[in-house]
Write a protein that binds this DNA or RNA. Structure first.
Lengths: 227, 227
DNA sequence: TTTCAAAAGTGCAACGAGTCAACTTTGCCA
DNA sequence: TGGCAAAGTTGACTCGTTGCACTTTTGAAA
């Protein structure tokens, strides 16, 4: 699920949405390149959904997309990457959730909201549900997703530190960032995701209030959303 | 670092310690089997330390130990496993730390002590330091260690739940177990491991006190539970 | 327009990890 | 001693991934 809400998951390939970021590819070359990439991704997802991730080989995907395996790996860093889009906006949304939160909202509360939003997936959309099932049921894909998600740990920690006026490598901010991000995986593995998220952020909420109050230079500890 | 204190790391192969668990192998057969396993592990570690993990192939290790690759994989589940011992006692120590803690010691406090003990490694022992360096500098080995470590999450969560009289699948206990175990990895990546452990468990300490008190229904945090 | 070199795309063959299916050796025990 | 089962061997095979060489495209100079 690389794109919970607005859209960035690989599943979107089937919806012909016009991305505002790249309205029209500049040159003929880039357009062809994008088409090749899309053909590979489409073939891969179709085969994965049909027979399961482990039952499909790279060579089969390359054949289905009518390219060589070398070309496939020029477009995607590995087999797992065939399932996910890059989704550069994840990090921006995490940082924004912390920086632009409303007054009176604590940092853990803001992160809780974003985590819940990301866990919520519409079971109505059968195609998306199938995609989710594929990722959830394949350990290597779950781990890849987890790595992608945790890659933003540093940026989130820095955003939190900036918000409370601490050094960029502040330990407490790093701890909060790590635990908050980990909550998504924890909840996903739980049989009551929402309840787990609530409990986790309840712990972080009161725990964070404690360490923040006792942190060295007491900058405006309140919720005053700077920025 | 699969064996911080008393000993269970693969590095022990060089110290001829007599393990109380298996004082003397029963038959010649099992002794030979253990010897083969040890020869493979020794050859692997020696080569890894000499040239680096990625620069050594399975076949080289098998050759050095004078066995076939098939035999090697009969003894070890994969290349990463060549570096770590099974270490079944980790889980026992985690559960014991929670169950047998002294009166007046909170569960997070007990887990903090165990985490700190596990992070502390003697830099005096050059062989062990080299082993640590190998694991730390090889991403795939770090990840493998993390997976090994987190595998005990369920058992720890159950122990915590039992201790506070909650159901075995209690969400709060699962959250505490997960966060407490994650702290080890978080601290290892930090430039001030001990400080990070202190901050992380400070968060968990006060956070846990909050949810434990309010367990049952509404957690004492007024976050608008939409949904 | 022609020419040409760099860049980008492509394909083949190969490498390393890991598996599989037969077959041989070896310890164990009746 | 004979026979069973575990341990080990061999060789070929699959699969993800990469290096190398070859072809096409592109942009700029002549």
């Amino acid at each position: 699920m690389s794109g919970g809400g607005a859209g960035s998951g690989r599943i979107e390939r089937s919806e012909q949405v016009e991305r505002p970021e790249r309205p029209e590819p500049p040159g003929r070359r880039e357009r062809k390149k994008a088409a090749t990439r899309q053909a590979i991704a489409d073939a891969a997802l179709a085969l994965f959904l049909e027979r399961g991730y482990d039952q499909v080989s790279i060579r089969e995907i390359a054949d289905a997309a009518d390219v060589s395996t070398t070309t496939l790996f020029k477009h995607f860093s590995g087999k797992e990457a065939l399932v996910f889009d890059e989704d550069a906006q994840i990090e921006a949304r995490l940082v924004a959730a912390v920086r632009d939160r409303e007054a009176g909202t604590s940092i853990p509360q803001a992160l809780r909201a974003l985590t819940l939003e990301r866990l919520k997936f519409p079971t109505e959309d059968e195609a998306f549900a199938a995609y989710t099932r594929l990722v959830e049921s394949t350990p290597v894909l779950r781990e890849y997703w987890h790595r992608m998600w945790m890659r933003h740990e540093g940026a989130l920690a820095a955003a939190i530190a900036a918000e409370v006026g601490a050094a960029p490598d502040d330990a407490a901010s790093a701890v909060l960032a790590h635990f908050a991000l980990e909550t998504a995986s924890l909840a996903r593995a739980s049989k009551d995701p929402k309840g787990t998220v609530d409990v986790a952020f309840a712990v972080l909420e009161s725990g964070w209030a404690g360490v923040e109050a006792g942190s060295g230079s007491g900058v405006g500890v309140g919720v005053g959303a700077g920025g």
